[in-house]
Amino acid sequence: MDISRREFTKVGCRIIIGATAGTTIVESLITNGIAADNSPDQSGYDWEKHFWGFVVDTRKCIGCGRCANACKLENKVPFDEEVYRTWIERYRVKKTSLETREEEVVIDSPNGGIDGFVDDIPAEELKKSYHVPKLCNHCDNAPCVQVCPVGATYETKDGVVLVDFQYCIGCRYCIQGCPYGARYFNTEKGTADKCTWCYHRITKGLLPACVQACPTGARKFGDMMDKNSEVNKIIDEERINLLKPDLGTKPKVFYIGLDREVK
């Protein structure tokens, strides 16, 4: 065959360009593919050796809001937007007349409880009142992971549900899919966002910021692979409950003293 030199170079160039572009694409696909299988590069941290769990003791919570505040500070969650990685709910059950037997429950969480709560119902009118801290349950069968169309939301080997900000397309399907209202839309990134159990801290042996900030020990965090961890002890010994257990999401936030009004 008779190929002129110019043509030959042209063809050659194309092959080279094609090949490089091709490999780059393939490479990026592979890296993306295996990113989730490799432990994050935290020196000495092996995610096969941990499985994290969280305990909330609602009996201890006084609704001071320090945890929610600490979370926003630690994770740079905007203070001026109504978005929260963790928040505190207050439940107040009013006294009922014996005739009507209709129970009135007033639930609120002003600014996620960050600024504490105001007593706007006189104590005499109340039967009981308690606080329930909430956060992402890092469900073991997480609907948010299930519904993400690109796999940007995933569960790590150590049991934490995370969002890959480089990959999320911002469709917000996961926000719809989460039964607990734990997710929000990060307007700056254009992606979904939520609690990470302070993954950047726990992989360095620190506690999540909210746990650290809680003055009463209502929040506990620990390794469920470690037999002696406080979290394991509580799960073994206390009567614990989960939020919306009927949905089959298998939450990994365990509650002590959960009342029936809590949804």
């Binding site: 690109v150 999320c168 397309i169 469709c171 399907y173 990134k189 992606t191």
Partner: peptide, 23 residues
């Protein structure tokens, strides 16, 4: 138009996550 990151929308075709009803 509704996506937070429309430029990544095509990833639904390239790396679909099969358990998602949207993928």
């Amino acid at each position: 138009v509704h996506l937070g990151r429309p430029e990544r929308g095509i990833e639904i075709m390239f790396t679909p996550h099969v358990t998602s009803a949207m993928s």
